[in-house]
Write a protein that binds this DNA or RNA. Structure first.
Length: 571
RNA sequence: GCGGCGGUCGUCUAGCCUGGUCCAGGACACUGGCCUCCCAAGCCAGCGAUCGCGGGUUCGAAUCCCGCCCGCCGCACCA
């Protein structure tokens, strides 16, 4: 479909889903405004996600700051990894990715090699500029996080978060505590992320500020996935890492369970969230046949990831678009923040049976004697023997001899009731703007020369339109009253401008799934028509039935219909 | 950031090459009125662009030149 995406963007702009920000000043790349319809649709996408990813499992949601101090992003690895090394040719001024230049010349550079080393390797190996042939380089790094100052002191560097996840990891201890210390634990966060993209493109596809929905699922790496049974048979279209590495496009179709058993997906819960993700994206109107999970080869993965699948959607006129990343982050983040902050973010679980562990302990037989023998260093001796089973070497390093000290070796048997570990994390992470683009693109269609936006009712920004057939004889008054009553439960649009056909057309174009029309029969028998957007068929219902019938048609208000429902978690 | 192409009413566009006839034309949308018993009907009236921004050349610039901004495509990066 040539130009399909452009038509969607044009519609979005004209009817107020989204448009580029700061247009009156020429616009700024990568910054967009959500208009009235966009906000409504975004809220509905978020609400659908919440119901499928958060509420269904009894997970929790938090809202942490967008701005964080240097230390947090140093510990998370973003300061060191969230940037690209740029090599600038000193003759022609052109810039390239330094590590890519080296790789193309067959020179190996260590992962995350410092700027000086990259520069030395480039210059030392006389790597040529692909443009002008010179071989003198200056290497620098472009940090794709937005940097700022927190407060008036210039040394207090802070960053706008590139992902919301860090706000969950840094607060993990308290979240874990207030959810009464149990695993698995799902923590969601919906908010903005910021990335100083070198080159924002394609309208709302690559933004510098965007909305994300992230779920950090904390689990015991030794436990299975409690949700697997619900999706075991769901078929996942996977472009495996191996195929992707070779540049292949072949997708294999495996059930969620098989994907785990065959080792294609390394974590059962990751497979579960992939299956759930496919259901979610399908409910936004994207057929499964146009979705795939793109396995990312190791060198393309984020620094924290042991395995990542990009959830991609085939968007008409655009091609494959990544709408989500599903990553197995292992214990990377909690471990990193523990080490950097000095605060223990590990958890303990009770063992089914206490375990007996033999170990060696050193005891002081006489403190008085120790002070005499070790002098000022007695405190160091105490510290050493309390933390080491074999302290001889460290004692010697103090300049003391074990045999001069009053130390007694004991073999003891300890009873261990718990196992301590850092929870592992599986993270599904969604870009809301991209989901919106995917949903709008798949909804976009034409009928008799008119645009019909066949959005799933669950995400349609306006749910019900109310029209008088003609605006006279009091039909408009009745319609206005009905619109007002319906707006207590639904997002309602009232329109009495132009002909009835024109109003249907306007409503179709913004995806209103149902239109209620007040006609002359309404005056005599109290019935109205409900006109269906996608079929243009009408049904007639009594005014008293209207709200209930609409709720039914819209799939709202009743029990959730997700097949993977497992009920809220209870204890 | 680089290379290629582009930026004119709300939207889509004509005009640009070959400067003046363009204080920029059209269509759709929009606003008010008339009309209107179910799918963008019709009629009347109206609103709406100093031509992305800034500078230059010229008697005169939407049109030619330069810089910048923004967009699209490719490279790279990513939700």
């Amino acid at each position: 479909m040539e130009g399909a995406y452009e038509r969607v963007v044009e519609l979005a702009k004209r009817r107020g889903f989204f448009w580029q920000a700061y247009e009156i000043y020429g616009g700024v790349g990568g910054l967009y405004v959500m208009g009235p319809l966009g906000v409504s649709m975004k809220n509905k996408i978020v609400e659908l996600w919440r119901s499928m990813f958060v509420r269904k499992h009894g997970f929790v949601e938090v809202d942490a700051p967008s701005l964080g101090p240097y230390r947090v992003f140093k510990a998370s690895g973003h300061v060191d990894n969230f940037m690209d090394p740029v090599a600038e040719c000193l003759r022609c001024g052109r810039k390239f990715r330094a590590d890519h230049l080296l790789a193309e010349s067959g020179v190996r550079a260590g992962e995350g090699a410092p700027v000086e080393e990259l520069e030395r390797l480039l210059n030392g190996n006389r790597v040529r500029c692909p443009e002008c042939g010179a071989s003198e380089w200056r290497v620098s790094r472009f940090l794709t996080m937005f940097e700022t100052r927190i407060g008036p002191y210039s040394e207090d560097v802070g960053f706008l978060r590139p992902e919301t996840a860090q706000g969950i990891f840094t607060e993990f201890r308290r979240i874990y505590e207030v959810t009464r210390e149990r695993l698995p634990l799902g923590v969601a966060q919906i908010g903005r992320g910021f990335r100083n993209e070198i080159s924002p493109r394609q309208a709302m596809i690559r933004l510098r500020e965007f909305n994300m929905m992230e779920l950090e699922f904390f689990m015991d790496p030794e436990a299975g996935c409690p949700y697997m049974d619900e999706v075991a048979g769901d078929v996942l279209p996977i472009l495996t890492e191996e195929v992707a590495e070779r540049g292949g496009e072949d997708v294999i179709e495996v059930s969620a369970r098989d994907a785990v058993e065959r080792g294609i997906v390394r974590n059962a819960c990751l497979a579960y969230f992939m299956a759930l993700s496919a259901r979610f994206v399908e409910s936004l109107g994207v057929p499964r046949s146009h979705q795939r999970f793109h396995g990312k080869p190791a060198r393309e993965r984020a620094h924290y990831s042991a395995q990542t699948f990009d959830h991609e959607v085939d968007v008409p006129g655009l091609g494959w678009l990544e709408v989500a990343g599903l990553a197995y982050r292992t214990d990377y983040d909690l471990r990193s923040h523990s080490e950097a902050s000095g605060k223990d973010l590990s958890v303990s679980v009770r063992l089914p049976e206490p375990e007996l562990v033999r170990r060696t302990r050193w005891r002081v037989s006489s403190m008085e004697e120790l002070r005499r023998a070790a002098g000022d260093r007695w405190k160091d001796v105490m510290r050493i023997i309390s933390s080491s089973e074999d302290p001889a070497r460290e004692i010697a390093a103090l300049g003391l001899r074990m045999e001069d000290l009053p130390l007694v070796r004991e073999e003891i048997v300890e009873k261990v009731n718990v196992r301590r570990f850092y929870p592992h994390v599986v993270e599904p992470s969604y870009g809301i703007e991209r989901l919106m683009v995917a949903s709008l693109s798949w909804a976009y269609g034409m009928r008799e020369g008119r645009v019909i936006l066949s959005l799933p009712p669950r995400v349609a920004p306006v749910q019900v339109a109310v029209f008088p057939l003609v605006s006279r004889d009091g039909l408009d008054d009745v319609a206005r009253r009905i619109a007002s009553e319906l707006s207590r439960s639904f997002d309602v649009m009232y329109d009495d401008d132009g002909s009835i056909g024109r109003r249907y057309a306007r409503a179709d174009e913004i995806g209103v799934p149902f239109a209620v029309t007040v006609d002359y029969e309404t005056l005599s028998d109290g019935t109205v028509t409900i006109r269906h957007r996608d079929t243009w068929e009408q049904e007639r219902v009594g005014e008293g039935e209207l709200a209930r019938r609409l709720a039914e048609l819209l799939g709202v208000g009743g029990p959730a219909r997700s097949p993977a429902r497992s009920g809220p978690r209870s204890r």
